[in-house]
Every structure is written in C-alpha cells, then in structure tokens.
C-alpha cells in the first residue's frame, strides 16, 4: 500500500506544485494574493476541454490552447482587477478583495457558459492504459500529468534563472524601484508574470480535469485553498519552496487518507500545515531577509 500511495502523492503533488508556482510567482512580484488563481485554473480546464470537444484537437494541442487562453485571461485579470488599484497605490487588502470579486465573476461566467454540472474529457482523449508493478497501479494519465508537470516546472525555473525576462522578474520581485532605475519596464514584467502564472494554472486545470475526469465551474475553490496552504508552507514568493510544499501537501493528504481516514483528508493536511508554521513561521524555504516589500 505504501508504494501505491507514494505514486498517488507524486502525481497529485506535481499538480499542486504547478498550481502553486503561478500563485507564488504573482505574490513574489506584486506582493498580492491573487485569489482568482483558482478561477483561472478552472477556465484553463474548460479551454482545454473545448479545444478537445469542439475543435477536435489532440490533447497536447489542447494543453497549449488552455495555457494560452488562461495566460491571456490572467493579463485581462491584471488589467481589470489589479492594475487600476496599483496605479492608485491602494492597500494590499483592496487587491485581495478585488481578486475575490474577479474570482466570483469568473465562476459565474463559467456557470452561465457551461452549466453547473460536471463535464468530462472524452474517454478516448488519452489511451486508458494502466501500468502495474507488483501491487502498484498507475494510469497513463497519471504518468503523463506527472512528467509534463515536471517539465513545465523545470522550464519555469530555467526561465527565472537564465532568461533576461526571468532575471528582470526576480529584480522586480525584490524592488520595483531599483528595477526601474536599471531600465526595466516594471509594468511589462508584471504583465509577463500574470501571463506565465496563469498559463501554469491553466495547465494544472487540464491535468486535474484529466486525472479526476471531472471539470466544473467550482473545481477552483478547493485547490485555491490548497494552493494558498502550499505557498505559505513553501515560503511566500519562494518558487522552489512552492514545488517542495506542493509535493508535501499531496503526500500528507494521500497518506492521511490511506492510513487514518478519508473523513480527515483536508483536516490532516491542514493540521500539518499549522504544525510546520509553528516551527517555521516563514515557511520551509522562506527567509525573512530574502524578500522584502
């Protein structure tokens, strides 16, 4: 049973990590919690679904469509919900409230467009293949979700470390003021951040939709809360921390269900979160000095 749970924790963790990466990225650059991240995730899943069912695209192309669509949605979100507040130097709380409002609107729009019922990717979207190794079962979907999530995370880390825009993004995360003195167009970096962050949310939406075979306008809410836990656990704004914490939260959840009870699924995970924060208030990889407003 242990190995089976480990496999489950790995693929689920990769989706949590991917979702939380974009979440923490926006926090790192803008110092705001974008509580509409889960709604963008949900829209990403629907973009992917529409690409498969209406445009008859193969799943890999649908994933690109979902990422692009979610990315553009993220830019629109910034323009409408965050940028006007930023220009007026509104307090952080205003941005959080604004993001909750945006989230509600995005969920309602999805409800209007797709109905409240659960939609699914067609069964032949991916071959229903199952691999077995002794007592351990793993589906092709899970393998693909895990592998592609890892590739996307590696791509993001590489982008942040090596590319000119990625370095500028880290500069803006530390200080918009210094960055602007270096000739960095801070507004453009913020737009890039929202695009990248939301594209990752869109991808994780497709992955979770595929793996659980369930897409609905309300699928963003539970992962929103888990994502929040993950980025706090990893250290706010800390990209490697979010990855680590994503896997950690999934493992706690999966093993909690397996060894304790499924009734306590989220309770166990959040108990662990609270315990970790009592020991390390700034998160596993968070350091008070590394980031500042």
């Amino acid at each position: 049973m242990f190995w089976q749970q480990l496999v489950n924790a790995l693929w689920l963790g990769s989706v949590y990590a991917l979702f939380a990466l974009g979440y923490t990225l926006v926090f790192g650059v803008l110092d705001i919690l974008n509580l509409a991240h889960g709604a963008v995730f949900m829209w990403g899943a629907f973009f992917g679904l529409l690409a498969v069912t209406k445009l008859n695209m193969p799943i890999w192309a649908a994933l690109l469509v979902a990422m692009l669509g979610a990315g553009i949605l993220g830019i629109v979100l910034d323009r409408v919900a965050f940028r006007p507040l930023r220009k007026r130097n509104a307090p952080q709380l205003a941005a959080i409230i604004s993001s909750i409002g945006a989230s509600t609107i995005l969920v309602s729009l999805a409800q209007g467009a797709f109905g409240a019922q659960v939609s699914r990717f067609p069964f032949d979207t991916l071959p229903a293949q199952v691999f077995t190794a002794g007592p351990v079962r793993v589906t092709l979907v899970q393998v693909i979700v895990f592998a592609v999530s890892l590739v996307l995370m590696a791509a993001l880390l590489l982008f942040m470390r090596r590319s000119r825009s990625g370095k500028a993004m880290r500069a803006v995360a530390y200080s918009g003021r210094i960055s602007s003195l270096l000739g960095i167009d801070v507004d453009r970096i913020i737009v890039t951040t929202f695009f990248v962050s939301s594209a990752l949310a869109g991808a994780s939406g497709v992955f979770l939709g595929l793996a659980f075979s369930a897409i609905s306008p309300f699928m963003g809410a539970p992962i929103e809360l888990k994502g929040l836990a993950v980025i706090i656990l990893g250290g706010l704004g800390n990209v490697p921390g979010a990855i680590l914490a994503g896997f950690l939260l999934a493992a706690t959840e999966v093993f909690g269900v397996a060894y304790v009870s499924s009734d306590f699924r989220d309770a166990i995970a959040f108990t662990v979160l609270i315990l970790v924060l009592l020991i390390r208030p700034s998160g596993i990889l968070g350091t008070a000095v590394e980031r500042r407003a």
């Binding site: 370095k167 500028a168 880290r170 500069a171 530390y174 270096l182 980031r291």
Partner: peptide, 17 residues
C-alpha cells in the same frame, strides 16, 4: 541599493538590461 537575492553577476547583467 543592490538586488540582494540576485548574484553579483546577475546584478551586473541587469545593469546592461
């Protein structure tokens, strides 16, 4: 005001942004 979390080399590179 240096970009504290970035490396010395990255600070210089961004000077040429």
């Amino acid at each position: 005001e240096v970009l504290a979390p970035l490396t010395v080399a990255e600070n210089l590179e961004l000077g040429a942004y």
